[in-house]
């Protein structure tokens, strides 16, 4: 049989249409992108108040003890645990912002401020969204972003995707794990609170249900700078308090809206972009990526349709082959 022009065009049209479908559905329509995930009403979180922090690093040491982490040595004498940043051996770190003479605490110019870096426990976390094997999970109740090394394949997509650069992979071992703060969920299971909040001498890091944390943030926002106020330590409602004058806060609580909100909130007297926290939009990156992905592959309907067209077209082409006269 010869392929007449008509059949040829039909075949071409079928295959072409299939490909065109694939190409067209590749363009996402924003309307179909999913919204940010909502926070669980039982979510727990942490509040770090840079103005209360004295830079003692008790949280860093407490975290290491609670999580069995080794020293992270970065000096020649190798005498001290001196993490430069969060890393496979360090789940949280206190960093120093210093400007000019660095004389005044919590002041942007000629001042200094401490800032904590650790997992933000996003409400809509990228790391959970990108993990191909569900090794990174978000607890439906507490909202804690946890990790299971037994499932993890070590692709490090979580490391690459996190907008805060939090998950840390080990590179110095043939059996590397991802390391990050899991809000001491093993301690919480025993009824304890995260070690960083437990040991903080000034209540700069404080643990509590996110509803209580939100209230506490509003209370601190209403404080007048310089006036004596009572600050709690360890956990909200602990009764372990101390009194000190409130500082001047910047009008920005980091983590309230960033990438759809985080369960670790930060308050400070210095703008956050100076403290190494990027300005981030409200829409989560996970929702955008999943929006595209689900627009294309929801229920595998589009790929199935395309495949149908392709099979039909390929079948036509192989018929031509079958009847090839050459044998």
């Amino acid at each position: 049989m010869s392929v007449n022009r008509r059949d040829f065009i039909k075949g071409a049209a079928g295959g072409g249409a299939a490909l065109a479908t694939a190409a067209v559905v590749s363009v996402p329509s924003p309307a179909q992108a999913r919204p940010n995930l909502e926070m669980s009403p039982n979510a727990v979180g942490l509040l770090y108040d840079s103005t209360l922090c004295v830079g003692c690093k008790a949280c860093v040491a407490g975290c290491k003890e609670a999580n069995g982490l080794p020293a992270d040595v970065n000096t020649d004498d190798a005498l001290w645990d001196t993490p430069l940043d969060i890393g496979p051996k360090t789940y949280n770190v206190i960093k120093l912002y210093a400007d000019g003479t660095a004389d005044h605490k919590d002041q942007e110019k000629d001042g200094f401020a401490f800032i904590k870096k650790s997992c933000m426990h996003c409400v809509d976390p990228s790391c959970v969204s990108v993990c191909p094997v569900s090794a990174m999970t978000k607890d439906k109740q507490t909202g804690i972003v946890g990790y299971n090394a037994d499932i993890c394949i070590g692709c490090r997509y979580c490391v690459a995707s996190c907008p805060f650069g939090v998950p840390q992979s080990e590179f110095d071992t043939p059996t590397p794990k991802i390391r990050k703060c899991e809000m001491c969920r093993h301690r919480q299971a025993e009824g304890k609170i995260p070690a960083c909040a437990e040991v903080c001498p000034t209540g700069a890091t404080i643990f509590g249900p996110l509803t209580a944390i939100t209230e506490e943030i509003n209370r601190r926002r209403a404080m007048k700078a310089g006036e004596a106020n009572v600050f709690e330590r360890r956990t909200l409602g602990s009764g372990d308090t101390h009194e000190r004058p409130a500082a001047q806060y910047v009008n920005h609580v980091y983590g309230e809206t960033e990438v759809g909100g985080t369960q670790f909130r930060h308050m400070a007297g210095v703008p956050f972009d100076k403290l190494g926290y990027p300005n981030l939009r409200e829409k989560s990156f996970a929702s955008e990526s999943e929006g595209i992905q689900h627009t294309l592959y929801k229920g595998l309907i589009a790929p199935a349709l395309v495949l149908g067209g392709l099979v039909w077209a390929a079948k036509r082409a192989s018929h031509i082959d079958d009847e090839h006269p050459e044998e």
Binding site: C131, S134, I153, C155, E170
Partner: peptide, 28 residues
């Protein structure tokens, strides 16, 4: 060779572990 925990790579094929939101999952 690039996977840190390559011995777990088969988890991608295990329905209980599959994470269909992940672009990486689809690519893999």
């Amino acid at each position: 060779f690039d996977l840190g925990r390559w011995w777990n790579a088969w988890h991608i094929l295990v329905p209980g572990y599959m994470q269909t939101n992940s672009v990486m999952f689809e690519v893999a």
